[in-house]
Design a protein around this nucleic acid. Structure first.
Length: 269
DNA sequence: AAATTCTCCTGAAGGC
DNA sequence: TGCCTTCAGGAGAATT
């Protein structure tokens, strides 16, 4: 499941290899993603230079002169950079063909999206309501405290709410609250200021470490065959029934809004 | 408003 | 061996 660090890793990869190059041709083999890819999209992008690549939350932004290609990797999406003329395999739904390589979008479960906007992308309805970037100055303990006070949802769902802070998914939400020693079901409006400071600080720390490690490779996610190494630093995700790294008690798991939630009953309150 | 539920999809895993 | 059923899950949209 690509979350912010995996998308950031992909972004850097693309910046390095395809930024500044011209799209010779775009091919869409399977339009049916989260939303249907518009038929006219290839004709808009063809022969335009990919000026640069950005990211907002988990959205990748590919800037062209006439507009921006917005890509979301969903649950199982990834982007591969391949030599010219590499034949497509199953689930490889779209290509941006450059003269020196192919940028190929793959997504077995098709929860991902390829969207076009001619407006500034931050004005697009999918991006305009997103909360602050967790690695930006805007994401502070004070901000988190303010927004948490009017919400009764659990702290885990608070962190996973993209309107509150964008880019944190299930894996990193589990890790962050474990490292903050906060119970995942703790209602948001019972957090005090110092706990919000801790959560903001640890969120930044965990995401930075994960980016530095090249992201987390879990089942579905891979970028160009490269793997991320952050999974070696995961304390709770995927470790239910195994001993807590802090106290050795066995980690518990429950389901919160359909998401596996792993935590230590002894350490998290 | 905020909270909850529904929805899309396929591969892996488990039961019989 | 093989055919079920279940589940994982991002997040927008619809509903309460």
């Amino acid at each position: 499941m690509p979350e912010l660090p995996e998308v950031e890793t992909t972004k850097r990869h693309l910046c390095h290899h395809v930024a500044g190059h011209i799209v010779q041709r775009m091919i869409v083999r399977h339009r049916q993603l989260r939303w249907p890819v518009p038929n006219i999209l290839p004709s808009i992008v063809n022969n335009h230079r990919l000026h640069h690549i950005g990211r907002r939350g988990k959205y990748l932004l590919l800037y062209f002169k006439p507009g921006t290609l917005i890509i979301h990797l969903g649950m199982s999406g990834y982007i591969r950079l391949l030599p010219p003329d590499t034949p497509p395999k199953k689930h490889e739904h779209a290509d941006l063909i450059f003269d020196h390589m192919i940028l190929r979008f793959c997504d077995p479960r098709r929860f991902g999206a390829i969207i076009w906007t001619s407006k500034p992308p931050q004005e697009h309805h999918l991006l305009s309501k997103l909360g602050p970037e967790p690695l930006s100055r805007a994401f502070t303990g004070a901000y988190l405290y303010k927004t948490s006070q009017r919400r009764k949802i659990s702290v885990k769902l608070l962190l996973m709410n993209n309107q509150v802070v964008t880019g944190i998914g299930n894996i990193y939400a589990n890790e962050i609250i474990y490292r903050a020693n906060i119970h995942p079901l703790r209602p948001a409006n019972t957090l005090d200021k110092s706990q919000c400071q801790t959560l903001a600080k640890i969120s930044r720390q965990v995401l930075r470490q994960a980016i530095q490690a090249g992201g987390t490779t879990i089942k579905d996610f891979q970028s160009n065959g490269a793997i991320g190494y952050f999974q070696q630093q995961l304390h709770v995700y995927g470790r239910q029934g195994l001993p807590c790294h802090q106290c050795s008690a066995l980690l518990t798991h429950t389901r919160l809004n359909g998401r596996i939630t792993v935590f230590c009953e002894h350490c998290q309150h």
